[in-house]
């Protein structure tokens, strides 16, 4: 895993396996706190980021743990923008899934054990964009917060 911090942002790159993804998510969470992302928002970021990165590992790069995942976080006065790029398979239909979760109002044996990833991403981000260019998936997650939300950690 490689990490580069620069003014108001950071770059991180890691191999597409679950263990490296887990370490990268924890690392990003800590670095974003240091960059001044308010605690509550940083927790939302962590949940959404984990789901987005897990999707890349499990679906885009399914069967290719050598694939690289790149995450670039940029802060500005409107909030935080996170760009996740990979060279794995595209999202089906080249679009972000609707992320409608299965109902939990059902018998115990029918309760959903998955399918919450895109729902959580859509719930927690202020904006989500996806495009595929030159064989590269580019997913951008935006989180708005005002400077007034910033406070010492």
């Amino acid at each position: 895993m490689t990490v580069n911090c620069k003014n108001g942002g950071m770059d991180l790159s890691f191999a597409a396996n679950e263990a490296d993804a887990s370490t990268a998510i924890a690392c990003l969470h800590g670095s974003l706190a240091a960059l001044g992302v308010p605690h509550q928002r940083n927790c939302d970021v962590k949940i959404a980021l984990a789901e987005a990165i897990n999707n890349v590992v499990e679906h885009a790069y399914a069967g290719n743990p050598q694939g690289r995942v790149q995450v670039r976080a940029t802060m500005d006065r409107n909030g935080l923008s996170i760009l996740i790029t990979d060279r794995g398979r595209p999202l089906p239909g080249l679009r972000i899934p609707d992320g409608i979760p299965a109902s939990v109002e059902t018998a115990r044996e029918d309760l959903p054990e998955g399918g919450f990833g895109w729902f959580l991403i859509r719930q927690l981000c202020d904006n989500v964009r996806y495009d595929r260019t030159d064989g590269e998936n580019r997913l951008r997650l935006s989180f708005a917060f005002s400077p007034a939300e910033k406070r010492p950690q």
Binding site: I47, A50, E109, E113, G114
Partner: peptide
């Protein structure tokens, strides 16, 4: 921290308990 895979694993843990047994959760962080 928990993600949707972890959540799914807790749901699966409850389902594999079977009929009249229950799984309650304590001490959840925010």
């Amino acid at each position: 921290f928990i993600d949707s895979s972890g959540l799914g694993a807790i749901v699966a843990s409850m389902k594999q308990l079977g009929g009249d047994r229950r799984l309650d959760l304590a001490g959840l962080q925010p």
